[in-house]
Design a protein around this nucleic acid. Structure first.
Lengths: 346, 346
DNA sequence: TTGAAAGCGCTAACAG
DNA sequence: CTGTTAGCGCTTTCAA
């Protein structure tokens, strides 16, 4: 691996100027056929690979967009032995990423992936932001200040975010309605009266889920329990939350979880304590991940259009970058769907 | 989104030179505390985001590595309606990519994803190669010449490749042994005598599978049928292959497929023709994907250590880039494992 | 401890 | 159709 050849080397070898070499690659039609061939041959001989850095510097464009997400996976890497463990499945983040990937491929864009190596540590997002034309970030993966700073330079789409700032677009999913419908189902069809909520607050999407839960209860004239804190991907927090409920005076009729991930852990925890689901306690999730669809019992949940979320984000960026002004709105709002499974007893 | 601030802007605002700004970010210890604070404050005010391009140009390093793969997914995106369709699962490529991602995150590297938008079209690989310090490429995703060209400039790891060239390292999985064991199982335990092989040749890993298949048959004194061509991800080719077998004089005892993806399609096709699997015809796969584990019947297959393949590739690159010479060998060879399922009748 | 200045490799006017 | 040339934003000696 000797020093990389540059335009200068290619130019020298082909007996032309560097401008011609550049033209040969960027506007082949502008160069005489024979010259073009000579340049391409020289490039080939030398193993010339144009430096995207240099090109990016000169043009002010990189041709790539970035996706910044968090490290949910790290804690939930499935045990090697449990071959059929449900947690082998793609999670929320993975499915959104897939949508982003597919849409990028269709557009011939490269995708730069970054993740909170040091969660909340500013330089990380900034770092990937420095290499792309536009950035997609999961809410909560980066500090809001960082997002705002980045947005001063390139268009940013936040997924499920709370940052309202010039240059920051948002893709939202209507979590509230879905969760309210799910809760109403438990109330109406299953006659539940004593519901528990397991999950965290703080992110707008999580807050909306809890709100939907609360709205249904309030409408039914029931008190709204405060949530038992838990975090998806941090399985021990969920286990602890459920164990706390088990130890409490009375087991609730139903445990409404903020995510499918947490619901699956909740079910495991209950079953491990010899409490049958849904016979004794109903458990529900949120997201509609593949894992939930194949779980036993099949999860009653609310499905987010994950792939579509990812695709939408890329489309927004595309509109912004093309300058076609395709996305005048500050945010897109996608619907979610209540999905009946078996974990509610249906 | 006004013009992005640069070192010059920050320097001007902080009343220092651009060199000092640069030092403040790269070697904070070298700058007087008061100066440092002034620079950082100025950067913050301005919303300064360093240009990775410029930095890369100056240092000759990008801090990112690339992964180049193909578009297997595009043709096999599952229908929206079939919520529990097995093909929602991550495929071989996805699982390898996951390993790459995890290892990159642990090392704090950004990952640049590219895929054959125009399969085999040179500029694509070259393009992502131009933006990274090292490249991982799936065999078959890019033309060998392109791989070799890239390898003149940056270290390249090919996954399952056939390119033997300076600078191109390879991660291989022993496909032959696994497939031979699987075939022997069909011969010995199930007494199969008339086996068909569905799958393509041309890539070394595919060739090795067919070889293993052939070795087992030859050892048993049986003739080796030529493969019925099919390509994973191109479902119609697989369907056509199986339909051809159905129309043939005698249905084979077993259909050995080159991949899980193809095995799943084969099973669908057979079942659609009222031919029960494995009762009438045995079907086996290769890869050990999640989809195969959850299929009905559960696939008998050979498991490749997919995540490990991805991780290994990153580690090789790491060794090469650190110059720690951690990987003197030209390739790594990982084992595969025969996995008993139910699709063989066991 | 800080500044001046020379590139890094490429693009894109502007001439010719 | 092709060459000259001036940057793009940052790093990094070398001096001061």
């Amino acid at each position: 691996m000797r020093r990389r050849p540059t335009v200068y080397d290619v130019a020298a070898r082909a007996g032309v100027s560097i401008a011609t070499v550049s033209f040969a690659f960027t506007q082949p039609g502008r160069v005489r056929k024979s010259t073009l061939d000579a340049v391409l041959a020289a490039a080939d001989d030398l193993g010339y690979v144009p430096s995207a850095n240099a090109r990016g510097l000169a043009t002010g464009r990189t041709g790539a967009i970035g996706l910044y997400s968090f490290d949910y996976l790290l804690d939930s890497v499935p045990p090697r032995t449990a071959d059929t463990d449900i947690r082998h499945f793609p999670l929320y983040v993975d499915e959104v990423q897939r949508g982003v990937q597919l849409e990028c491929r269709q557009r011939g864009w490269a995708l730069m992936l970054g993740a909170g190596h040091n969660p909340g540590h500013l330089p990380d997002v900034i770092d990937v932001a420095g290499r792309v034309d536009g950035l997609i970030a999961f809410a909560g993966s980066a500090a809001p200040e960082a997002i705002i700073q980045v947005a001063k330079r390139i268009p940013v789409v936040e997924l499920g975010g709370m940052v309202r700032h010039e240059g920051v677009h948002t893709v939202l999913v209507d979590n509230r309605t879905g969760m309210r419908e799910l809760t109403e189902h438990l109330l109406t069809t299953h006659g539940c009266r004593d519901l528990a909520y397991v999950g965290g607050l703080g992110l707008p999407e999580f807050d909306a889920r809890y709100e939907g839960f609360g709205q249904a209860l309030t409408a039914a004239g029931l008190p709204v329990p405060s949530p038992t804190p838990s975090r998806p991907g941090r399985d021990h927090t969920t286990t602890a939350a459920v164990e706390a409920l088990i130890r409490a005076a009375a087991l609730p009729d139903a445990i409404v979880c903020a995510t499918d991930q947490e619901a699956l852990v909740a079910i495991d925890t209950l079953v491990a304590a010899d409490i049958p689901v849904p016979a004794r306690v109903i458990v529900t999730g949120f997201d509609g991940t593949v894992a939930g669809r194949f779980a036993t019992p099949r999860l009653t949940t609310v499905r987010q259009p994950m792939e579509e979320v990812g695709r939408t984000a890329v489309r927004i960026l595309a509109g912004l970058l093309d300058g076609s002004g395709g996305y005048p709105n500050e945010y897109d709002y996608l619907p979610s769907t209540f999905v009946l499974g078996a974990s509610c007893g249906c």
